[in-house]
Amino acid sequence: MTDTLDLLKTRRSIPAVNIVEPGPSDAQIEELLTIAARVPDHGKLVPWRFILFRGDSRRLAGEATAALMQRQRPDIDPKFIEFERNRFTRSPLVIAVVSRTVPDHPKIKEWEQVLSAGAVAMNLMVAANAMGFSTQWITEWVSYDPEARHILGLSDSERLAGLIHIGTRDIPPFERPRPNLADIVTDWKPVA
């Protein structure tokens, strides 16, 4: 069995709160993004991009989304505001994978472009895991709230495919239940 197959069979997400320093170096980040971008991209549209949250920008982004949450939900429990304030400081590096489709393209359907952004996110996670880092792909409310997306640097036409947290785990990996193949695999048969 190849190292790649071993990696894919054992890859695990680690909760972002358990992803600590050290994170990837600048050279490693460049390599991760180069690998992430090597995905199927029908028409070479590059229907995705990246936003990096590292260093002090993590704290500032969390403060901005926490302020928005407080404004939108003034009666919310303060513990949720504090949790939000720490959203981007949970791990050393957070990479936003942004889906930026070309709607109504004459040849490449929007769904294909969205899937390409998902493939970018997964390539990014697998590459980071192959480098020895731990990852977690999170969406949460900031992915769906138009004001939050604007705060994070997305245009009105862009969507947040996910926030990929990257760093070093401070807990051992753990397994979660996986689907039984008998429940999700069928052989195709002609429709009668």
Rank of each mutant, 00 (worst) to 15 (best):
R11T: 03
P190W: 03
S25H: 09
E82S: 11
R178M: 11
E30L: 01
Q113P: 11
S25G: 01
R100W: 05
D183M: 09
F83E: 11
K189A: 12
A121M: 12
R38E: 02
V97G: 04
A117H: 05
L60V: 13
V142M: 14
L52G: 12
P177L: 11
S134C: 09
T139A: 13
E140K: 08
V98L: 10
H150I: 04
T101F: 09
P74M: 00
G153I: 04
V126H: 09
Q72G: 00
I151E: 03
G167C: 01
L124V: 09
A27G: 12
V39F: 03
F88L: 05
P47D: 02
A67F: 07
T10F: 01
D187L: 15
A67G: 00
D41S: 09
P103E: 02
F50R: 02
I138P: 11
L68K: 10
A182S: 13
W111S: 10
S157W: 00
W188F: 03
I51V: 14
I35L: 15
T101H: 03
A161F: 15
R176Q: 06
A61D: 06
A27T: 15
H105Q: 13
T34C: 06
T34K: 10
R149K: 11
V142H: 04
F50N: 15
V20Q: 13
L7I: 07
T89W: 13
I151V: 05
V102F: 02
T168F: 05
P47F: 04
V126R: 06
